[in-house]
Simulated assay, not measured.
Amino acid sequence: MGDQLVKAKEFEKKADKKLNGWCLFGSKYDDAAQLLGDAANSYKLAKSWDQAGKANVKRANCFLKSENKHDAANAYTEAAKNYKKVNTNEAASCLEQAVNIYCEIGRLSMAARYYKEIAEYYESDQNIKQAITYFEKAAEFFQSEEVSSSANQCKLKIAQYAAQLQQYEKAIKMYEEVAQYSLNNNLLKYGVKGHLLNAGICHLCKGDVVSITNALEKYQDLDPTFSGTRECKFLANIARTIDEEDVAQFTDVVKEFDSMTPLDTWKATLLLRVKEKLKAKELEDDDLT
């Protein structure tokens, strides 16, 4: 590793010398970029990720000086891979630089792909707000490029995290859009009831019985088969327990559904929020009487 660090520093010194000197033949920026690429690889072998990232950023700047935008974007993505090991924010910043270049040169599908990757960086770092922001950008770009499957993957992530942040309307919109798209795709039809269930749970979190009742009518119009599903009956029964302010009945309905179709952590968390609101309302009514 020590040898690789020595090599990396030598390559970087040579690159700096090229950049600060004159070049009668060829391009000093291309020559320096080559040396910085060698430096970045040596830093990488030495597991000096921060230094490798910096070398790749310098390399990207060299490519920009020589008007080689495609290679500049690639260098920024390499820098992002290096920084990902040590610094999520730097990694995201490098990928955003790459995205800006891809937008400039009309490579929107690449821009979409890297917006999604930025979102995943923030997701792994538990920075949910930033993850939502970049999943939204990715979804928009994928949609514009008609890569609907990738757009829908992003929308489902937006919905999941928006609901966690109690942004229920945004979550509902995303789940409904994905459900609508899936209805027209034979391979995805089986997932529609799950998307509508998730949207319905978000409606329940709003604590508005009229809202969930209207949503169920809308979903049955959207997909006539939905009314016969366990998911639809579950949402209708939950809405009834909320209307009747019956916590015990609410618990029984959830337990029965869970015994047949086990609830994942996301659904369980949201339904617990609904139950807590219902319990608070019940206590409030007891105090009034």
Rank of each mutant, 00 (worst) to 15 (best):
M1P: 12
M1S: 13
D3V: 10
D3F: 08
Q4T: 13
L5Q: 10
K7L: 13
K14P: 00
K17G: 08
K17A: 10
K18C: 05
G21K: 11
W22K: 02
W22F: 04
C23W: 05
L24C: 02
G26M: 01
G26R: 00
G26Y: 00
Q34S: 08
L36H: 04
L36Q: 00
S42F: 13
K44A: 09
K47H: 04
D50N: 08
A52S: 14
A55C: 05
R59D: 12
C62Y: 07
C62R: 00
E67C: 01
N68L: 02
A72G: 11
A73D: 11
A75F: 06
A79R: 02
A80C: 09
A80F: 02
A80E: 04
N82H: 15
Y83Q: 04
Y83R: 03
V86E: 10
V86W: 10
E90I: 00
C94S: 02
Q97T: 10
Q97D: 12
A98V: 08
C103N: 14
I105V: 13
G106V: 01
L108H: 09
S109V: 14
A111T: 06
K116M: 02
E117Q: 11
E117N: 10
E120G: 07
D125Y: 03
Q126F: 12
N127Q: 15
I128C: 02
I128Q: 00
Q130N: 15
Y134R: 05
Y134F: 13
A138T: 03
E140N: 12
E140A: 04
F142H: 04
S148I: 00
Q153T: 12
K157V: 03
Y161F: 11
A162L: 07
A163R: 00
Q164E: 03
Q166C: 09
Q167T: 09
Y168I: 03
Y168H: 07
K170W: 04
M174I: 04
Y175F: 14
Y175P: 00
V178T: 01
A179Y: 02
S182E: 10
N186M: 11
L187F: 12
K189E: 13
G194Y: 06
H195Y: 15
N198I: 02
N198V: 08
I201H: 02
H203D: 12
H203P: 07
L204M: 06
K206P: 06
G207H: 12
G207E: 05
T213V: 05
T213G: 05
L216M: 10
Y219C: 01
Q220W: 13
Q220I: 15
D221G: 14
L222D: 06
L222H: 14
T225L: 11
F226V: 04
C232V: 09
A236V: 13
D243L: 08
E245W: 09
E245S: 15
D246F: 13
D246C: 10
F250T: 04
F250N: 03
T251D: 06
D252Q: 14
D252W: 11
K255R: 08
E256Y: 04
E256L: 08
F257A: 05
F257E: 00
D258C: 01
S259T: 10
T261A: 12
D264Q: 12
D264A: 09
K267N: 12
K267A: 14
V274W: 03
L278P: 07
K281F: 07
E282V: 14
D285H: 15
L288A: 15
T289Y: 08
